[in-house]
Design a binder for these strands. Sequence first.
DNA 1: GGAACCGCTTGCAGTTTACAACCGGTCTGC
DNA 2: GCAGACCGGTTGTAAACTGCAAGCGGTTCC
Lengths: 167, 167
Amino acid sequence: MAGDHRSGCPINLSLEVLGDKWSLLIIRDMMFGNRRHFRALLTESEEGIATNILADRLARLTEQGMITSAPDPAHKQRILLSLTEPAIQLVPVLAHLGAWGRRHLPVTPELAVRAELLERGGQPLWDDFMNELRELHLGIPRPPGTPSVLTALTEAYLAEVGRPQTP
Amino acid sequence: MAGDHRSGCPINLSLEVLGDKWSLLIIRDMMFGNRRHFRALLTESEEGIATNILADRLARLTEQGMITSAPDPAHKQRILLSLTEPAIQLVPVLAHLGAWGRRHLPVTPELAVRAELLERGGQPLWDDFMNELRELHLGIPRPPGTPSVLTALTEAYLAEVGRPQTP
DNA sequence: GGAACCGCTTGCAGTTTACAACCGGTCTGC
DNA sequence: GCAGACCGGTTGTAAACTGCAAGCGGTTCC
């Protein structure tokens, strides 16, 4: 029902889904870090989320239609998490939010590289990235010739990590 | 110090500033509703924030450099709140977030009008709007000929409110 | 067959939120 | 000149949420 919403304002409704300190970070890790199950999100996160919080957020994001879960065919006890189309369409929001943070907050260089690349690429790069996510998470083959944005972002990050100082 | 941050990731740092259910709504009301003091934010908000939460968020946003406060020359007991340049640069983020919410969440039509207009206008409209906000909040005169985006948004909203049903 | 790994759940303490009542100063209308 | 509305808050309280650590039954790896 709509009765449990504070208002019908688009920004408010978005915040009711994403307006906490963890939900968007989970989506970020699934998107940019390609983390697809519980343990990966738990242990490979920069910020160190607690197990009960992660379980709670995954449940909430699932019932809000942002992610789906299915048994992983490879490992029987694993549960494969996938982003839904609405979540994939958050790419421009995350790109702008990252660009804003990079400009105004004390980011660390190696973690800022991806935000910078994503900002410079603009809408065309975001479209490529969303097509790639649709392939990875929804099983929709991406248009032939689409480059892997995920690979490019990861390589840029690793290159920056390998560099000892700003040369 | 940077020691009190969970990580230096741009998205994480942005969420440490804006990642709760109220901060962005306050900025939204100051931006789009032109609410510039405590009582206006308190009573004219769609969502009904509590006084202590509002006071707390205003203090936090101030120390994070998102807003400033100054005595209002017109009313001696009033405090005039202003957005800073970083906060004004959130316009594209809010535009994208509103557009996303409008597409995927159960928004009410009259509140969705502004998001739609802002989305259709794109970057040129956002630039006009940011220039207008710089004039209103920072005292920087906007380039001559710049239209008032705030007026356009408000009129579109009022027109939608006045309409009884979707005709 | 033992150890590591899987997605959680539970218990607990500390923090944050929501709601309502209240406060001293100030401006407004008469 | 004064009563009442308005100003930006503070305080108290209960409920909800968060962070941390431990543990649990089942699965997979070696």
